[in-house]
């Protein structure tokens, strides 16, 4: 019962967040200096052509009317027309989205799979030298600039060692298993870049919460009953320590998406991020706006999923 209420509340919050994102970008785009009118219609045009141009893009109507028209179009999955390629923005971006989802999804899974054992290692050897190394590298890891990591990996593992391709997402004219292998091969360096960028946050959070959990009374009780320490850590303490980590996933997804934009730029990875980089160079505002709206929707949905997972994992939420 309480769970349904919790889910509904989260869903509402997700919808408000998405509405906010859409509204803010709409008015920013219309009110800031580089507005769409000057992008599609220059003062040097004759009044007649200018007017027709504005009508084509619906820019001659009052701002609020444009806003509701935009919302209406958005509900139908229409994100406007690219200034440059004259193709629908949604078509351009939907071709790119699967690559970004593949990249960020893989990076997230790998980060969590690496972060849990590392966090356990640091927490169970608290104050020891392993812990010191983990903590110092944690601080450095959280301070890394994503393109710096990307360029470093590209240069060392891609160019010097030659182990991995340094650009693109897949070799063309491949089918079946060879194609999947090629996709995986191209994914390694961009994925590793994102993993290195966010691993530290997970390890440090898990370390702190696990140390706290291991000092709790239920762990002492388990030990008193003769439970082996490894079982106390992995079965009792870790389960509880993973809850804040689940929350962290939700908080970090926005950062992960930002990192993907930078990473895709370096590796010419054909995702939404690379589309953003290309649109910046050509001042293609509808694509930039659409990309943000699409990424905001992705983040909101991902947040909903982690919230739901949290609700299912935490009995306190279930019981209200």
């Amino acid at each position: 019962m309480h769970l349904t209420g919790y889910f509904l509340q989260r869903l509402l919050r997700g919808l408000v967040t998405f509405w906010f994102a859409v509204t803010v970008t709409f008015f920013l785009v219309r009110l800031l200096p580089g507005d769409p009118v000057s992008a599609v219609a220059s003062p040097s045009m004759t009044e007649e052509i200018r007017q027709r141009q504005l009508e084509v893009y619906g820019l001659d109507r009052p701002l609020l009317a444009q806003y509701f028209a935009y919302l209406g179009q958005l509900v139908q999955g229409n994100l406007g027309i690219s200034f440059l390629s004259s193709q629908p923005v949604s078509k351009i971006l939907m071709e790119r989205l699967p690559w970004t989802l593949l990249l960020t999804g893989t990076a997230l899974v790998v980060t969590v799979l690496l972060g849990i054992p590392l966090g356990v290692l640091a927490a169970t050897r608290a104050r020891g030298w392993v812990d010191q190394i983990v903590q110092v590298s944690g601080v450095i890891g959280q301070s890394l600039f994503v393109p710096s990591i990307g360029i470093f990996l590209l240069y060392t593992l891609g160019l010097l060692a030659g182990w991995f391709p340094i650009g693109g997402a897949v070799k063309s004219d491949l089918t079946g298993f060879a194609r999947i292998a090629s996709i995986a091969h191209h994914l390694v360096l961009p994925c590793l870049t994102l993993v290195m960028a966010q691993l530290a946050g997970y390890v440090l959070t898990l370390r702190a919460t696990l140390i706290e959990a291991l000092g709790e009374e239920y762990c002492d009780l388990a030990r008193a009953k003769g439970t082996p320490e490894s079982k106390v850590i992995w079965k009792h303490a870790l389960r509880n320590a993973l809850l804040p980590t689940t929350t962290l996933i939700g908080l970090q997804i926005g950062f992960l998406v930002g990192g993907a934009v930078l990473t895709e730029t370096i590796y010419a990875y054909p995702g939404v991020g690379r589309a953003i980089f290309e649109a910046v160079g050509q001042l293609d505002f509808p694509v930039l706006q659409g990309a943000f709206v699409l990424l905001a929707a992705t983040v909101v949905i991902a947040n909903l999923v982690t919230d739901m997972a949290y609700g299912l994992l935490d009995p306190r939420v279930r019981a209200g």
Binding site: P33, G250, G254, A279, F285
Partner: peptide
């Protein structure tokens, strides 16, 4: 604050910076 922190900030910064010049 909650809503702003949930959004991907970099793409939003890119959009605004590109608009202002």
């Amino acid at each position: 604050v909650d809503v702003s922190l949930a959004l991907p900030v970099l793409p939003l910064m890119i959009l605004v910076a590109a608009l202002i010049g």
